Each structure stands twice: as structure tokens, then as C-alpha cells.
Amino acid sequence: MSSVGIVGIDTVAVARWLHTIGVDYTGTLTFDRIGLGQSNLTYLVRDSVGGRWVLRRPPLGHLLASAHDVAREARILSALQDTAVPTPRVFGFTEDPAVTDVPLLLMEFVEGQVVDRMSVAQALTPERRRAIGLSLPRTLAKIHAVDLEQTGLIDLASHKPYAQRQLKRWAGQWEQSKTRELPALDDLTRRLVESVPEQHELTLVHGDFHLRNVITSTDTGEVTAALDWELCTLGDPLADLGSLLAYWPEPGETFGGEFPASTLDGFPDRAEIAQVYFDETGRDPEALGFWHVLGLWKVAVIAEGVMRRARDEPQNKAAAGTPTVERIDALVEKACDIASRAEI
């Protein structure tokens, strides 16, 4: 077995590690990069008789502090195993220098459909698109219902007000990763800081919940696994709903970049997604406008960081393509529009 051509993985050492943690496989393992994410790198591991697993590691190159914490992701997924939240099972985690120079997480391969390309979304029937769209807020409701004490996640993150934490963190990330000056984003940051709503509860927050980060049933469209928990924290549950809406362009809107799947016929609009969530949870929708704007602002900051990493280390580029200045500017413009309508 050779590691030649496998970026970021010592395949021989990983194969030995699988044996030590009791993962049985047959023949030679193959490793193929999968997914469109440009943060933690994901690989499909296969043996010669059809066994499949998923391996995760941080991206290549320089990382900002606290970003891409694979150990934390492993802890969260392990804690959620016996809850109603659909997640892949964790088989192992290692930081052993004999295996790897970065943390590695080995997970179950979950069967199903990932709607991560326009060609996949376009091939779905309108009925299937609707089923998938309506399953997203119901899955968020399950995440936000997790018992923090029972799962041992009560100390996962700070219990201080979440909006202020998010604004401080992502404004700092912007300063470290921006490729240019963007006065409209700086002004939006100021408006958000001045308009923070009171926080009434503390729940588990996924932090990056959207269509590309779930696996759905090929039979029903229901979410069968929520993925990419690296930004998971404790905070205001409406932050996740605002983030989901930030990734959900409607017909005629341009901030969806190369993946405006939600503009296709059948997918519910943002108002219906929000209504399903509030019907499911009974929460007050009053602060949703703030969290929607913050979601768009945060997506813009993340996209700028992805653009910066891809420029600094070309091997971090993924099949989804790299965000463009035009898309980031469109996100900020949409956020400013919604902020004005929400009187932020």
C-alpha cells in the first residue's frame, strides 16, 4: 500500500491504526477524497470486499486558532450517538504521531444522497426536493432539543451570550483572513453589534447546518445524517436557523454562488422553512431577522477565509470551486438589505 497521490494521509500508517482499533477490513485499502468542503478534508476509505468508512483530517497549510478542530468534532459525534440527532457512528480518533501528524477521525459511511451539486438537485423530483427541504428544520429542532447534561456537552463551550461571542470570533477571523478592505462588511458588523437581541436559552448549536452538510434518505428525503460538526458550540438556537436561511437563496437572488439549489421548483421558501421550525419547537420568531443577517455575514467571512486558504495553499481547493469576490459581495449586499428591513 502506498501513500503516493493521497494528499495529507499516510495510508500505510492509517491501515495499521484501523487494525489496532478493531476495524476489520479485507485486502488493500483505498483512499479517495470526497465531498465538496474546503475546511476539514474528507476521504472515503474502501477495502477489497466493499467495506466503507469515512476519514476526516484538518485542511492543509496554516490554520487559524480553534479552526477545524477534529478532536472536538469526534467528541460531539460520540456524545450524540444515543440521541434523536441523526449522525454517523464514530469508530476511532487518533493524534498518535506514529499514525499521523494531524488529528484523524474515522466514522461510519452512511448510505444515502448528498445534495451537494446542482446536477444532483436538478435530478430530484419537486416532491423529493420539498421533502428534503422540510426535513432540514425538523432536524435542527432535534439538535436543539439535545440534553446537554445527559450527553456531557454542557461544558462544550462558553455559556456567555452567544451573539457577542460570534461577532467577536468572526470579526477576528475576518481581520486575519481578509484579502481586501470591504467597508460594507465593516458597517454591517457595527450594525449587528448594536442590535444584539437578548438570549433566553442555551442549546447545542450545529454552527454550519445547510443542504450540503446532510445525508438524506433515497426513499423519503428525510435527513439520515448531519455532517461537519467542527463549528458546533453552545448558544442561541435561532443562530442555526438564521444560518440555514443564509444558505437558502430564493428565485431571483444571486448570493447562492455556484449552488443555488434552493431556487429550484419544489424546495420550500425561507418563510416555510422557518414556520416548520417554529411549529416544531414553539420558539419565539421575533429575533430571527438578526440571526438571518448574522448568518449571511458569517457565511461571507467564512467564504473569504476559504478564498484566502485556496490562494495560499492550492491543494486545499475542492470540487465545489473557490468562492469569488462577487459572491462574497452579494452575500454582504443581501445581508444589508435584510438588516434594513429588520430595522437593524
Rank of each mutant, 00 (worst) to 15 (best):
Q113I: 15
V114E: 06
D116V: 01
R117K: 14
M118F: 06
S119K: 13
V120A: 12
Q122S: 12
Q122G: 01
A123S: 15
T125S: 15
P126E: 09
P126R: 06
E127L: 09
E127H: 09
R129Q: 03
R129Y: 02
R130I: 00
R130S: 10
A131N: 08
G133H: 01
G133T: 03
S135E: 03
L136T: 01
L136S: 04
R138C: 03
T139K: 04
T139A: 09
L140T: 04
L140G: 06
G152S: 11
L153G: 01
I154A: 15
I154F: 10
I154W: 10
D155W: 06
A157D: 15
S158R: 09
K160S: 14
K160I: 02
K160H: 11
P161Q: 10
Q164H: 14
R169Y: 12
R169N: 10
R169W: 06
W170G: 00
W170Y: 13
A171M: 07
G172A: 09
G172Y: 07
G172N: 09
W174S: 00
W174Y: 15
E175K: 12
E175D: 14
K178A: 13
R180A: 14
R180Q: 13
R180M: 10
E181P: 00
L185A: 07
L185Q: 05
L185W: 02
D186V: 14
L188G: 00
T189A: 12
T189L: 15
T189R: 10
L192Y: 00
L192F: 04
E194F: 00
S195A: 15
V196P: 03
V196N: 05
H200L: 11
H200Y: 11
